[in-house]
């Protein structure tokens, strides 16, 4: 574990250098695991019955929990977008749990959280124009058109604060654990870091994932409803 995001190798695509960093490789690993899990569940789903048992119970309980959570914040009208939020939820949660293994979490890099925040921002604009049509564009010029720069800054601050919040929390955990690993002698590095990992990765990771998803849903709902 180190403070810097290490650059693993450089690809040269048509004269443009593409840097493959540790973050990208780690998120590929997470994506591979999640895709394998999804395919596994899809194959299992053919044998699902009317009355759930065993593994089916677990899957249905998880999906139903997130469904109710999305229904409370998004409402019935926007419920069709909740699979996207489920994907974000699973990815951020598993990437913050990823640093338990001593590897760098992809969310401790601004590139990942910034990408998610930009996706939320695009979703806000697209769903706002789709559901409210002209009224969404007009909401930038409320109460008078000279307020347009203020409204624009207010909208642009949303993805910035959303991404910085997750990034700062994950990075602070990474930095504290790196300091602990590099400053202490080897014999205290055996059992004690488990508590730090439980606090910074599992607890903070779960809370920040919940916060990220619920605040994105609130932003999308205020834009579209």
């Amino acid at each position: 574990m180190s403070l810097n995001v290490d650059n693993i190798w450089v690809w040269n695509i048509f004269g443009v250098e593409v840097w493959i960093t540790e973050t990208i490789v780690n998120s590929w690993i997470i994506m591979a695991v999640l895709i394998a899990l999804a395919i596994f569940i899809r194959i299992k789903m053919r044998k699902f019955k009317e009355i759930p048992t065993g593994f089916q119970n677990l899957v249905e309980a998880g999906i139903e929990m997130f469904h109710n959570f999305a229904k409370n914040t998004l409402g019935e009208k926007l419920l069709y977008i909740s699979p996207w939020f489920f994907a974000i939820f699973v990815f951020i949660l598993s990437s913050s749990l990823f640093s338990i293994f001593g590897l760098r979490a992809p969310t401790a890099d601004f590139a990942t959280t910034g990408a998610f925040a930009i996706a939320t921002f695009v979703l806000m604009i697209v769903l706002g124009t789709r559901h409210k049509k002209g009224a969404y564009i007009k909401s930038y010029f409320e109460p008078h058109f000279i307020f347009f720069p203020l409204n624009l800054i207010g909208e642009l601050a949303k993805p910035v604060s959303l991404s910085f919040r997750l990034f700062g929390n994950m990075l602070s955990g990474t930095i504290i654990l790196t300091l602990y690993y590099s400053l202490t002698p080897i014999f205290v590095q055996i059992g004690i870091p488990a508590f730090f990992h439980a606090f910074f990765d599992v607890f903070f990771g779960a809370i920040q994932t919940y916060i990220f998803v619920i605040i994105s849903q609130m932003y999308v709902k205020t834009a579209a409803d």
């Binding site: 409370n72 910085f164 919040r165 700062g168 929390n169 920040q208 919940y210 619920i214 609130m218």
Partner: peptide, 20 residues
């Protein structure tokens, strides 16, 4: 509880900015 978590996250933003 859910409102409290959202409020806590909103209040935490300025602290995170200082940290960054």
């Amino acid at each position: 509880r859910s409102a409290m978590f959202v409020g806590l996250a909103m209040a935490e933003t300025s602290g995170i900015y200082g940290l960054l």
